[in-house]
Every structure is written in C-alpha cells, then in structure tokens.
Amino acid sequence: MNIVVNGEEKEITEELNLEELLNRLELPKERIAIEVNKDVVRKKDWADIKINDADKIEIIHFVGGG
C-alpha cells in the first residue's frame, strides 16, 4: 500500500501499526506526536492503530522558534 508521511510518498508491503512505522523509520518515540488523516493519535493508541492505504500521516517534533 501507499501512504504519505510528512509529505513523502512511502510504499509499505506489510501491515504496520504506528509504533511499527516509527521503528521502521528509525524515529524517536519521545516528545513527538502523530496525526493520521488530520486527527491526532494519542501515544497510548499508537500500537493499536493500523496504517491503511492512502493514509496521510504527519509526525512532528520541535525546533527553534519564536
């Protein structure tokens, strides 16, 4: 299936949940947040939310700003 993560198209061949996606992308799990199709997914639910074809996922962290 094809998904979009942070504006980049990604192809996924097996079923993944959000936690597995973070592992796959080698991303940290602390002080980040995930939105799937414009809805924030609570951290406690990451392992329960399966990724579906055409999902648009945003993974954010923090940078310097004013």
């Binding site: 942070n6 991303l27 940290p28 962290h61 923090f62 004013g66």
Partner: peptide, 18 residues
C-alpha cells in the same frame, strides 16, 4: 521559552532540540 512544531525529517537522524 517558545518552540515551533515541525515535521520530523525522515532522511536523517536529528537530535532532540528540546
């Protein structure tokens, strides 16, 4: 202090700014 929300880059490892 203020901080900005930003997409995590997927192409490289980043340190946690915080």
């Amino acid at each position: 202090v203020t901080v900005a929300v930003n997409r995590v880059p997927l192409d490289r490892k980043v340190e946690s700014f915080l």
